[in-house]
Simulated assay, not measured.
Amino acid sequence: MVAVGYTLMGEQSGPKELVDYAIRAEDAGFDQLVASDHYYPWLDAQGHSPYAWSVLGAVAQATSRVELMSFVTCPTRRYHPAVVAQKAATVGLLSDGRFTLGLGAGENLNEHVVGGWPHVQQRHEMLEEALQIIRPLLDGQTISYTGDYFEVPEAYLWDRPEQRVPMAVAASGPSSCDLAAEYADGLIATEPDEKLLRVFDERGGAGKPRYGQVMICYGPDEDECRKIAYDQFRWFGLGWPVNANLPDPDAFASATRQTHVEDVAQGIPCGPDPEAHVAAFKRYVDAGFTHVAVVQIGGPTQPLFLDWARDEFLPRLREL
């Protein structure tokens, strides 16, 4: 059975609200909570971006059953990989082993706050070095590391779970699939791309979990949901190469100036029709994903969505 996740979207809600939604989501019956890790929102209309790791620590204490995951953390610019390993181990302990560390090459939007944004080739090289540091630390090893981008004279994690915190790596092509297959315990993808999963299998990832994420905007009024989706998520259609390089919310606003409400509604199901939302989720199931997290667009709409998910949406998804 595919695990159904709920996304704690820090770009559209504050930290206290996110903890409350996490409690509600666990009570509703979700299997997993995934937390975005941003410094900025994509658009000013979203209006939030708290520190994800503080939220994860609070959620770990406020819940007892649901799995947790960072979705995703960039371990190369804002955070040194040795510090990412320490954070992951701590959340692993606080959650009694319910945490998975999701990692990726990052976005300029969030990482430029500490300096320049490297070329994509350098970003992949930096991510590989970070994985070479993080994994042995989570395994309990004392490491010394010297690479082209990172240096760790000596590091050891004093507090970590008995079972190593599992890692998953975001992939969009063959090179990142290689990294996920070699260093990680699973793959993360934001599109239901069956071909990408086949590449992951061929590179050594067969049998490992695959984590996906689907955007929806549930609500009683379809037109209102379309407006909310356009207001907050019209950037989604730009594609990863563009999203990874735009520096701030103003740039995302400029890049989506020619986008219309209808354009967004074609890619994101909006309104009260459960069939549309189930169909969007099912695309990931059919592609072969083992875990799929739902993004409900619109911060204040979360309680309404979670009640609906408990009573109608989750039972329908279980039937898949």
Score class of each variant (00 low, 15 high):
P161A: 03
S144Q: 15
G173F: 04
T100M: 08
N110S: 14
D193H: 03
R123G: 02
L137N: 11
E107Y: 14
E162V: 09
D96N: 15
I133P: 10
E151D: 14
G102H: 08
N110W: 08
G147D: 10
Q163H: 12
E129R: 02
L137P: 10
A170F: 04
P174R: 14
S175A: 11
R135S: 11
E162G: 13
S144A: 15
E129I: 07
R164Q: 12
L103C: 09
Y183C: 04
L131V: 03
L138Y: 12
Y149G: 13
A180K: 08
E128R: 15
A181I: 04
L127V: 03
V120D: 11
H124C: 00
V169T: 12
F150E: 13
L93D: 00
L94M: 13
R160K: 13
N108T: 06
M167A: 02
N110E: 07
G106R: 06
A181E: 02
S176Y: 01
G102D: 03
I134V: 15
E128T: 09
Y183A: 04
L196H: 06
N108S: 15
G147M: 13
A170V: 08
L157K: 06
D178K: 14
V113Q: 11
D96F: 04
S144M: 11
E182G: 00
Y183I: 01
V113E: 05
E154P: 00
G106H: 08
Q163A: 15
H119F: 00
E154K: 15
V152T: 09
Q141F: 12
G147V: 14
M167D: 03
M126R: 13
T146Y: 10
P192Y: 01
G115T: 11
W158G: 15
L103V: 10
R135H: 07
E125I: 01
G115K: 11
M126P: 08
A170C: 05
R123F: 01
D148W: 01
T190C: 00
L94W: 08
V152K: 12
G106V: 03
E129A: 07
D193E: 01
M167L: 15
D185R: 03
N110R: 10
M167W: 04
E128C: 05
V114P: 11
A171M: 06
V165Q: 10
E128W: 09
R160I: 04
M167I: 15
V120P: 14
M126D: 05
S172W: 08
D96E: 15
Q121V: 14
G147A: 13
A180I: 02
P136F: 06
V165D: 07
G147S: 13
V113H: 13
P166V: 08
P166S: 08
P136C: 10
D185A: 06
V165M: 09
G106Y: 05
A168R: 02
G147H: 13
V114C: 10
Y156D: 04
A184F: 01
Q141N: 15
A181K: 03
T100A: 04
E162H: 09
Q121L: 01
G186C: 04
L101K: 05
G92Q: 07
P166N: 08
H119C: 00
L179Q: 12
D178L: 12
E125N: 09
D96V: 01
D148M: 12
G186D: 03
Q122F: 00
E194Y: 00
L93G: 00
T146L: 11
L187F: 02
